[in-house]
Write a protein that binds this DNA or RNA. Structure first.
Lengths: 188, 188
DNA sequence: AAATTAAAGCAGCGATCGATGCGATAATGG
DNA sequence: CCATTATCGCATCGATCGCTGCTTTAATTT
């Protein structure tokens, strides 16, 4: 089982010792992901970088994969601000723009790739929150009584190209380019 | 530097010793990728599975990342058959169908994820050949004097959703679904 | 404020990973 | 057919990874 995300109930307030260590370890992982190669991403190395003893990391997370999953969950579960301009087209453009900007951050990109590399379905956490955002935008438009493309099409037309470019090419998606994706999804 | 892909000039014919070892190691990697977790994918383990001594693997490939890149290159550089039915729509449907079928293979999927996990731009080899196929199909249609969507759009509309689903979700793209992507790309 | 409980530090242990020097073996060129 | 060269098998060596009792420190409870 993964780390108990709230470290028991003890010391879970921001600023507590456990929380401070957690933050330091997360930060260390993010740093190492962009610096060293993947081989060097090991528990002792992470612990040393975080100024924490390796034992602590082993006990709380157990493995690099679980630690990565935890980092990714924190990173991608930040209370995302869903744009709400009243216009579906404009909402989607801002959404695509923000997502592209996010995926252009080298730290984020490295994290996504590393998570994918751990194999399982862990990669889901990198996109689930974003997908929910997209669903929210579309469902809101539908609640206004307007026609919209199905969510699936929006995923294929927006989420997929953005993540595809970020992960598989060496030129991450520019925020400006991302906006053009919306034009292809929505009829003029 | 990475392994000298043609192992010198000695022994590079199919059936030679070097070629046999290379095949065995590649096979071992593919097997282990689907069985064990990523931590267990280490040179000694791979060598043991392949019935080869670890030294050989260290000398020829140097690291798991380079070995994975080599395996992926072989896997995705197989002489791919570009469909040529005379109809762009039908060509693209077959192309999408084949690609989806390919990405449904658990071995292939695991390999793609592992390659992405190695960080760099290695992930490119998983899609470059496929992208060239797609370009070929579209350029052939253009050579016939017909209008086509730009290659970029085709990538976003076909390649991206297929790879996105394969890598980030737990339900790989079905070949039948893949064909529907073409309908969204081409005007009816 | 003292007692209790939980988490982090610490030392040290097998296991094994990645690497190296040397001898054996198979594939080429004359 | 023999010599040369390159590649693989083998034994071995540090380095370090992942892990486990035990102690110490910090946080919660009464």
């Amino acid at each position: 089982m993964p780390a108990q995300s709230p470290p028991s109930r003890t010391d879970s307030r921001p600023g507590g010792r456990s929380a401070r260590i957690r933050a330091a370890v997360h930060q260390a992982v993010k740093e190492l992901l962009t610096e060293e190669d993947r081989e060097a991403l090991t528990i002792p190395v992470i612990a040393a970088r975080a100024g924490v003893h390796a034992t602590t990391v082993y006990r709380r997370w157990g493995s690099v994969a679980e630690l990565l999953a935890d980092v990714a969950t924190s990173r991608f579960s930040g209370d995302v601000v869903v744009p709400d301009t009243g216009s579906l087209r404009e909402d989607l453009k801002r959404y695509a723009y923000d997502l592209a900007k996010d995926l252009n951050d080298p730290d984020t990109l490295a994290l996504v790739r590393a998570i994918v590399g751990t194999g399982g379905e862990n990669a889901g956490v990198c996109r689930l929150e974003r997908q929910r955002q997209l669903e929210a935008i579309i469902e809101r438009e539908q609640a206004r009584g307007n026609e919209t493309p199905p969510v699936e099409r929006a995923i294929d037309a927006l989420l997929a190209p953005l993540y595809y470019r970020a992960v598989f090419t060496d030129q991450p998606p520019s925020p400006e380019w991302a906006r053009t994706l919306v034009s292809h999804l929505l009829p003029d």
